[in-house]
Design a protein around this nucleic acid. Sequence first.
DNA 1: CGCCTGTTTGAGAAGACTCAAAACGGGTGG
DNA 2: CCACCCGTTTTGAGTCTTCTCAAACAGGCG
Lengths: 247, 247
Amino acid sequence: MDSALASKLQHYLPLTPEERDVVDSLERRERRFRSGEVVLEEGEATDRLYVVTGGWLHSSARLSSGNRQILRFHFPGDLMGVSSIAWAETAATLTAVSDCMVSDFPRLALARVFKEQPRLAALLYAVSAAENVAMSDRLMSLGRTDGRTRIATLFLDILSRLRITDGQIVDSFELPLTQAEIGDAVGLTKVHVNRTLREMEQAGMIERSGKIVRIVDEASLVEFAGFKDRHYRIATDWFPPAAMAVV
Amino acid sequence: MDSALASKLQHYLPLTPEERDVVDSLERRERRFRSGEVVLEEGEATDRLYVVTGGWLHSSARLSSGNRQILRFHFPGDLMGVSSIAWAETAATLTAVSDCMVSDFPRLALARVFKEQPRLAALLYAVSAAENVAMSDRLMSLGRTDGRTRIATLFLDILSRLRITDGQIVDSFELPLTQAEIGDAVGLTKVHVNRTLREMEQAGMIERSGKIVRIVDEASLVEFAGFKDRHYRIATDWFPPAAMAVV
DNA sequence: CGCCTGTTTGAGAAGACTCAAAACGGGTGG
DNA sequence: CCACCCGTTTTGAGTCTTCTCAAACAGGCG
């Protein structure tokens, strides 16, 4: 019954009942996808946005060379397919990483949010700004650090984002990605990912068994990778007041 | 007298007089910076946003290793320092690339936009979404392509963004960047940038004289780099109607 | 003229890539 | 319960791109 988007937004700001209603109305049409299934293909025409309500997905794009870059991972509460806000064609392919649930709504529905719930609109804008900064962090990671640091950063990012919706998680998590996929995310080949993971394990940074990854000493890995958590908090003090209830 | 932000936004959507007033009110405090000057330092506390009203700037961040990554270039009409929407501390350093003009306003001023001009707020959101996609493109570029392609992509991006405000520009532009700065933008060393530029020149992709760069055959360079222009158009058809004038 | 910043060139090293093949592991059908 | 299969992980060897260190070379400015 709990809307995933609402619960993510509530993490930042307690919503009024009216705001909740509006958010909930964006999550009516829910669909289930199996691990590996494609929700939306790059280049497809769409005017819809997608919300993760359970599981993981990623968005990726493909180069003419055939290489693929994974652009982002999406966790419960995340808004996906944001490019359809600005264009009629999707910019990235959405693929289910694990079995997952996704609901979608037409971008037209956002008009109501902007018109009737300015505070909620401001929150969406702030979340988008935060995502922009998180993207910048990844840019730094790919442009200016070596393989080991890139993978460390990826793991820390996943860990911190899983924690937003799952308070249980302490120092390990299940990573439903192949090494080839990790490579597509951090800009390395699968072969090099393998060697690097191995090195990191030997160096005592991580432990692996099956698909479970354990971060041995998070604080020092954060230090090593220069990791910054961009999702935990955002400023809400400048927002306009919530709309009055129409009584 | 023409507000730079307004004129960029008008490029996407004709603004009502009321909308224009609100936008113009964000550009009152204008300051001048000389090439190389720092407008805002990474980590500094701020609650302000910045608008480029003339010239170029870039935002960058520094790794503990001392390496720097240039995250974005900013042209007239661009909103900078967007991280202050979400946090009290700046995430990136803003530096003037050329002599330039910048105006700034407190993030609190955005509240009025969201409250009174929902259509304008939607436009800002859509622009932010488009920037997110542009950032994804750069991620692909750094993660999955070689030096030559990265530099080609950078040049094409600059060219197309300069054209938005300067219709004159055809196939060449002044590049006020050192090779070290180009390297910081595309994730290469200055030495390698030098060699790559030289190669590109020999291959007949570009011509250089002083700070002027000429793209010899734009269409085939676009093809070569898989470049996509993310700034020219955005969809506005889902926006809520403009607020009525209060008479 | 000399200095400073930026560009160019050289040479060797390192990180990451390619191609290739072997080992592993979980799932399926006999 | 075993044998087989397929996708994934691991390992090996050689290559290429990019980096580092270093020094020479412009060009503008006081």
